[in-house]
Nucleic acid binder design. Structure first.
Length: 420
RNA sequence: CGGAGUGUAGCGCAGUCUGGUAGCGCACCUGGUUUGGGACCAGGGGGUCGAAGGUUCGAGCCCUUUCACUCCGACCA
């Protein structure tokens, strides 16, 4: 993409009401903007690209694990929620409204009921099990107090998966598979995280684990072991506990952002909604379920909370909206522009996502382009400037802002090697 | 929902105490000079001062009501 053709409204100053680093940087770098209501945000081109990248990684790993992507309406009839009693339990977080026939509906904050409904009218035999179906779409929760930008918005992109099994053992197997799958997803995103034992909360069910992105600004306090990978939510382990129950190592407190949560659900919902199948013994039996969520839009905030410096965002390799930012120092210089365009085309041909900063309006000098690069946080910049006459370009690695001068000769190969 | 605060141009703010026809910086538009770290000069466009009502000859400013947003707390698949 050419910078000059994209809507990227970077700002020197952020709105004064943004306090969290990720919120400030995502606004300043032009990824998102307020849409006017509390907890509601417009995703601008850079934000949309980044969101799609994270979403694609989530989808890729789930599909590899055998999950099926579906799409359910974001509007569900309240009657579905009344079947499980959650119409009352959820209370005001459910945004309710009526259609023209005066029937009650809600914007879905989660979809256990809708998924169980889908399965109960489709799956009749144990031979169709196990089954894991998921969707990645927008959820709405009328939060008591939306805050911190994408961290706790009212409308947010969430992946919600639901698995259906003939036995508790098989559900537990799937639970472990999802834990492993989540670890792959978070690792690919380049995040430092902990899997912690957690309370099951309003969803209900037996066991649950939270995936916490480690960040000082996290809203959750967790206990982690210095010696192994054990971690636990404060609700689950006593705060004054100092010895790791798993390895005997020392426990310490830290902060985390809840970005994923997996539950062993059991038959709570299937029983309430009479979702049953015929088992091997020709007996009707409620589905044994698991449910698994990932806050996709929240992950964007989490990635920035964990990866930024005083200059701006530092996107990780797989989350970055672009991999390379070609800065044409003086875009009116024909030689510079020609070299930049050639490199741009070559990288694109190799499947690399490149942003060509070709802006040539007189207000957008070299300094502005570098500042924007630093603010936006694309992993690498290739600066094509005066040194081009000597056959040299500069490469800046965003993480650490390391600058290197390279020969134009062999540049493409050099870059491809770094990006591999 | 309790406590605190803020609403004036796209963003950041001043002006409110002490009422007199709205201002600064950034951004934006035009022209020129610049050109490797958010450059400079000149000119220009943009605001029913969150909304409603009241006091007054006159309200951004005073009074009443209301709405929105933010922060702390409680809450949170």
């Amino acid at each position: 993409m050419r910078f000059s053709r994209m809507l990227i409204p970077t700002m020197k100053e952020a709105p004064s009401d943004a306090v969290l680093t990720s919120h400030i940087l995502l606004l300043r770098a032009g990824f998102i903007q307020s849409s006017g209501g509390s907890g509601l945000y417009n995703f601008l081109p850079l934000g949309k690209i980044t969101l799609d990248k994270v979403r694609a990684i989530v989808k890729d790993e789930l599909d590899r694990a055998g999950c099926n992507e579906v799409h359910l309406p974001m509007v569900t009839p309240i009657t579905l929620w009344e079947e499980t009693g959650r119409a009352d339990k959820f209370g005001k977080e459910l945004l309710r409204f009526k259609d023209r026939h005066d029937n009650d509906f809600t914007l879905s904050p989660t979809n256990e009921e809708a998924m169980v409904n889908l399965v109960r009218q489709t799956v009749k035999s144990y031979k169709q099990l196990p089954l894991n179906i998921y969707q990645i779409n927008w959820k709405f929760r009328d939060e008591v107090r939306p805050r911190f930008g994408l961290m706790r918005g009212r409308e947010f992109l969430m992946k919600d998966a639901y698995s259906f099994h003939a036995s508790v053992e098989d559900m537990e197997r799937e639970f472990e598979l999802m834990e492993a799958t989540y670890k792959k997803i978070f690792t690919r995103l380049g995040l430092a995280f902990r899997v912690v034992e957690a309370d099951s909360g309003a969803i209900g069910g037996a066991g649950s684990k939270e995936f916490m992105v480690l960040a000082d600004s996290g809203e959750d306090t967790i206990m982690v072991c210095d010696g192994c990978d054990f971690g636990a939510n404060l609700e689950v382990i006593a705060e004054d506990e100092t010895i790791c129950p798993k390895c005997g190592g020392g426990l310490s407190q830290t902060k985390g952002i809840e970005a994923g949560h997996i539950f062993q659900l059991g038959t709570t919902y299937s029983e309430a909604m009479k979702a049953e199948f015929l088992n091997e013994n020709q007996k009707l039996q409620p589905f044994v379920m698991g449910t698994y969520g990932i806050g996709v839009s929240r992950l964007l905030a989490g990635i920035i909370e964990q990866n930024h410096d005083e200059k701006g965002c530092v996107w990780t390799k797989e989350s970055a909206p672009f991999t390379v930012n070609i800065i044409v120092a003086k875009a009116k210089n024909e030689e510079q522009m020609a070299v930049a365009t050639k490199l741009y085309n070559e990288l694109e041909a190799k499947g690399i996502d490149v942003l060509l900063d070709d802006r040539m309006d007189k207000k957008t000098g070299f300094g502005v382009k570098v500042k924007d690069f630093e603010l936006i946080g694309i992993p690498y910049a290739v600066v094509i400037g005066n040194d081009i006459s000597e056959g040299k370009v500069e490469i800046i690695t965003r993480d650490g802002l390391l600058k290197e001068t390279l020969l134009l000769d062999g540049l493409l190969e050099n870059l491809l090697e770094r990006l591999a």
